[in-house]
Design a protein around this nucleic acid. Sequence first.
DNA 1: TCCAGTTAGTTCAGTTTTGAACCTTCAAGG
DNA 2: CCTTGAAGGTTCAAAACTGAACTAACTGGA
Lengths: 153, 153
Amino acid sequence: MTDPSGPLEPRELRAWMAFLAAGHLLDHEVERQLKRDGGLSHPEFEVLLKLGVADGNRLRMSDLARLVMVSKSRLTYQVTQLERAGLVRRTACDSDRRAVWAELTPEGAATIERVRPGHRRVVREALIEVLTPDEIDLLGEALSRVAERLLAR
Amino acid sequence: MTDPSGPLEPRELRAWMAFLAAGHLLDHEVERQLKRDGGLSHPEFEVLLKLGVADGNRLRMSDLARLVMVSKSRLTYQVTQLERAGLVRRTACDSDRRAVWAELTPEGAATIERVRPGHRRVVREALIEVLTPDEIDLLGEALSRVAERLLAR
DNA sequence: TCCAGTTAGTTCAGTTTTGAACCTTCAAGG
DNA sequence: CCTTGAAGGTTCAAAACTGAACTAACTGGA
């Protein structure tokens, strides 16, 4: 029974530090590619992706915020930027007049397609190809649990 | 032989998405705790930690930047903030007059000690305790490789 | 029907981050 | 000694982010 606020074991520390480092570096790499190939930030790209797989290519702002894991005000900002770039459009929601649809435009869909190949390549080269198939499965399994657990609070 | 820019396999996609989600959520949690217990941001805390384990509790700005994985200008800003808060002090470097030491003050060391228990608790509860010992080892192993690989470019 | 409590989204002011431009100092080779 | 190029840091203006305050609209109960 270890002290819940005492030092981490070396192996635990290693896992945490590797997680942080890999996160920083991977995100940096992804950001670079997205900016280069499409002038997008990573959060912006995630917004486009979520809209791309949504029913009718649209989502309400608050659902979108939850999916992308971003604050409401931040999403407002990002969607405004994407709207300015013509990649997303805002529409009124008939059934709830407080709500706002964020909808992917054809240009937005085209942008996804243009940027995605490079994005996939980055994820492959930096993450997937460095891991064995077993590690990939275990990582997905373990980190899904971590995320799930944090969501359920 | 899969197309290097084609879609990811479902399990690969799952690993990537879990990695992103866990990263977002964990960071959010850590940020919350640090702000609450010590008025610090996560990057600021990482700066203090690196200084805390360094020889003589001090590092040059550029070494510090590399260790914390932030840009030079960002570090300049953060160290200025920490200096303003009295947690860090800048000193001239005799052997290289371009260089600047960032040095942990006693108040900075005290702040680490004050904040660390809560920080550890967060990491434990959100990450460590959700994983089996095997998963922890494998995560450390695998993600270290990912980070290392990205550093070596 | 009304009101109290929620929820959706935006706004705003203040803070942080970015990236390029800019000094200064160093190091290596003529 | 002089260059010349690279390295250490800072600066600045523009862009992005944060959290709290706010408006408007929904919901359920008295």
